[in-house]
Simulated scan of single mutants.
Amino acid sequence: MILRNRILVLLAALAALAAVAVASVLHASARADRRDRAQPGGPRVTSGTVTLTTPGRMVFRNMAWGPHRDELTTVPATDPSGPRTASGVKCLRFYAASGTGVCLQAVHGAVSDTYRAVILDAHLKERARYDVPGIPSRARVSPTGHFAAWTAFVGGDSYAGTNFSTRAAIVDVRTGKLTPSLEAYRVLKDGRVYRAADLNFWGVTFARDDRTFYATMATKGRTYLVRGDLRARTVTTLHPNVECPSLSPDGNRIAFKKRVRGLPKDAPWRLYVLDLRTMRETPLAEPRSVDDQAVWRDTHTLVYALPGDYGADLYTIPADGSGKPRRISTAAVSPVFVG
């Protein structure tokens, strides 16, 4: 065979191999597309308009597999398992109040991911963005919409153990003034100024006065509920063994997860409610370990996430210790109820 014919044969073989490769990729892509568009038993999700001011809605991160996974999605609050309208805006964690949203996002890079906090207006348009130093875990907005907070893991990736480090930030969304870490605040513990190299803060929740907030502080292997003062830039310890606090709409109670002795190390929590006037704890009727910052649906009801087939499902429970847990939505996390 002459050289020219050998080259032609080689080129033909390479073309055939390329065609096979392209066909395989297209076939796999088509299968993935069919899977995304028709997940058996999954919620129905379609594109549409999502706002943070439409009354009677629940807005949340959609976890259902498909083209709208991780997008902010809305349903009627009275029908949380109904068809979903997706916004196109993707978040890892989300919260909103009074038309202001905070969306914690991953930015995928060629070598590694970075993270950011995006402040959203009522129509989910970006108002500002801030770098987040690690994996996002919690997000909150003050009832007035004037302040936003987020927590990130900067070492470790789970609250279950003890080998982790967190960073909690607060921003005034009106001025853009950012406090990158609550470690800059003065700590008052047992009536005295407290200093320690191992301080960690997470799980901020705001009161209505645009001054008071609550959070978890950890030091020396223990956790505490702290009350913060945005003007004085102080945090004061109030009660031990409180994680991921969530302030009730009336400002009198804190829902939280509590480490209970004897439970597995990777599932150590139970849901409780603390009365801030009496410091009396009430265990809730959820027997499973909840690793979430619960949301108050109203003054009587809590909503929280537990692991599910798509990553997470939402459950509800009475806040007075009665009743039993009820699943209200599959493939959902980070719920917000718009009045």
Results as ranks from 00 to 15, higher is better:
I7K: 13
A16P: 06
V20I: 11
A21L: 11
S29M: 14
R31D: 15
R34L: 12
R35Y: 15
A38V: 15
V45P: 00
T46W: 09
P55D: 06
T74Y: 04
D79G: 14
P80N: 08
P83S: 10
R84M: 10
A86W: 00
C91W: 00
R93F: 13
Y95A: 12
A97T: 03
S98N: 07
G99I: 01
T114Q: 04
A117C: 08
I119T: 05
H123L: 12
R127P: 07
R129M: 11
V132I: 12
V132Y: 05
I135W: 11
A139Y: 04
A139Q: 05
T144C: 02
T144I: 04
A148I: 03
A149I: 07
V154H: 08
G161R: 06
S165G: 12
I170F: 02
I170A: 00
D172K: 04
E183R: 15
A184I: 11
L188N: 11
L188T: 11
V193A: 14
Y194V: 05
L199K: 03
N200E: 13
G203D: 00
V204T: 02
T212M: 09
F213H: 05
M217L: 11
L225I: 03
R227H: 04
G228P: 01
D229T: 09
V235M: 05
V235D: 00
T237S: 11
L238A: 03
P240N: 06
N252E: 15
A255I: 04
K265M: 14
A267G: 09
V273R: 00
R277D: 10
T278E: 05
R280P: 04
E281R: 08
P287W: 03
V290P: 00
R297H: 14
L306Q: 10
Y310C: 04
D313Y: 01
P318L: 03
A319H: 02
P325W: 01
S329F: 06
S334Y: 05
F337A: 02
G339F: 10
